[in-house]
Amino acid sequence: MKTRLFFAASILALAAFAAPAQETYPSRSITMIVPFPPGGVADLTGRPIAAAMEKVLKQPIAPVNRSGAGGKVGYAAAANSKPDGYTILIALSSVSIFPEVDAIFNLKPAYTLDQLVPIALVSADPTILVVHPSLPAKTAKDFIALAKKQPNEIAFSSSGLYGTLHIAMEMVVQSAGVKLRHVPFAGGGPAITALLGGHVMALSSGPAAAVGHLRSGKLRALASWGDKRLAAMPDLPTWKELGYKNVEFYIWAGLLAPKGTPDEAIKALRNAARTAVGDAEFKRVMTKLETPVNYLDAPEFQKFWDRDAERLVRTVKRVGKVVTAK
């Protein structure tokens, strides 16, 4: 009995010693996993927010690019990392897609969504439908009408099969009941190059990547995937306005942490993110990137993410396995 008491007491004492050490989170540098190569959306959002959060946390946040398999490598690495608050992830919308695709192919999922918990949403930008100027469709309505008249004739490019830009277009396909030809490319850059060359006729693209080509008239924008019109393009209707209620898609970037990260760490990170989005330097960089900041704190972000993941998973399920038919 006595020994047991002594034992309990020593554990308590140890805990008491350990507690102050935990309160000083973060006591060393934090790793931010960026699942894409430098220069991509995740990288260009992750680095400025990391820099701004450092100022609050008084500890360095080191972005580490772990790219591969369209982001899956980095997502899996973050989801399976030690949940001690010293590894966080800057994720894009595609994080919701991979577990579902693994399920389609009966693969053991590299990670599941419940292995990750939200910290904050940083930005959310709807994609826009851009078409080659030689396409006769002048409006989104024309586009759908043309696709109905010539089923499986209009080709669109994407960043890759089951990639975000593919799934966005697939929402329209499913909602409007049309058939389009899908030509996947390895990333958003080649996808837009193919559109500029007229090898495909349409693409669901991030606004920032397309805006220069819209201004010069090399491409034409027809619709946006947002739930309201883009501030930068007030004349561009949304699919929702046009009556396609299920068509809503964002390229969002948010901070996540592996599940099991201590509460005080999550609290500190949420707090740091909240201050960081108001940081003048951060705002300046994001304006230059033409990416509007769209901050949501963890609870609202979770709701947003759930709705978004639900839409994406539903679309991916309906796409299912792709059969390359002649």
Binding site: P38, G39, L44, T193, V211, G212, H213, S216, K218
Partner: peptide, 22 residues
């Protein structure tokens, strides 16, 4: 058009120069 030029374009996009034919 290539991975290398993609990084270069990112480098100027950060400064608010949008890539395009202009």
């Amino acid at each position: 058009t290539s991975p290398v030029t993609a990084v270069m374009i990112a480098a100027i996009m950060v400064h608010g120069i949008s890539p395009g034919p202009l």
